[in-house]
Write a protein that binds this DNA or RNA. Sequence first.
DNA 1: GTAACTGCAAAATATTTGCATCCTT
DNA 2: AAGGATGCAAATATTTTGCAGTTAC
Lengths: 139, 139
Amino acid sequence: MNQNLSILKKNNLSVTEGRRKILELFLERGDALAHADIEKQTEGAFDRVTVYRTLQTFVDKGIIHQIPTTDNAILYALCKDSCEAGHHHDEHVHFVCDKCNKTICLDDVTVPNVKLPKGFKPSQSAMIVKGICNECRGN
Amino acid sequence: MNQNLSILKKNNLSVTEGRRKILELFLERGDALAHADIEKQTEGAFDRVTVYRTLQTFVDKGIIHQIPTTDNAILYALCKDSCEAGHHHDEHVHFVCDKCNKTICLDDVTVPNVKLPKGFKPSQSAMIVKGICNECRGN
DNA sequence: GTAACTGCAAAATATTTGCATCCTT
DNA sequence: AAGGATGCAAATATTTTGCAGTTAC
């Protein structure tokens, strides 16, 4: 079975053109996408509203997660299998390339613990590293 | 001299009602503010556009810095003295309290280095920790 | 006096909601 | 057939831009 099909089925989502296509985009590209990227990539095949709703659905189901960014845009990226609905495990490092501008999930790099001042109790943490990615390095 | 006056002067900005007031807000509150917060706190004393422009000016001058957030809003917080125009040193940890929802700069907690996969060259990093802050702890 | 800042109007952009229709199961 | 997903229209929210009047120095 196609990977995107199985992901949708596993999450009790009906399989529609839009969901398949958007999920496929994430699977193909491997980096994080903004709403605007998805609109561009799908070239108006789906209504702007459908894209909003699809992304929201995927976030709710734990298929994708949001990535914090300094600039305006909200980015989304695929979750690992360990994510479940309402319970994300996205405590890995996100890398933003200054050159190609891609945002990549470094799934294997976990966010280190830091010593917080007295009284602060951490529950979750996120980390963003900027720089040059492995693909742009050689060029 | 007032602290906000000296900050403005130091950055060659003319001292206006709006700039003084917005800077004062940051100095008083100590936590990070979104554009919407500032509008609410100043209760329409200044045009919405003025607030946008003032924040942009402050960012350009290195008086405040933007903080990445998981949800939509862009947050701003005061920079330490070591920040200069066009050259931020905001590599400290930002703490978001789940209870009071404030975002606090932990200026003394520096972002630890992480080992990146082969080929990735870091230039800058940011970190966000969620949890319960010191003030909400006791309550 | 002059350059810079502000407010207003309006354009451009982004996001949300309601509802009728169509599609998946 | 029934429930959910989509598209369209429109409401709402957010951000940017131009310009004329005002203010800081």
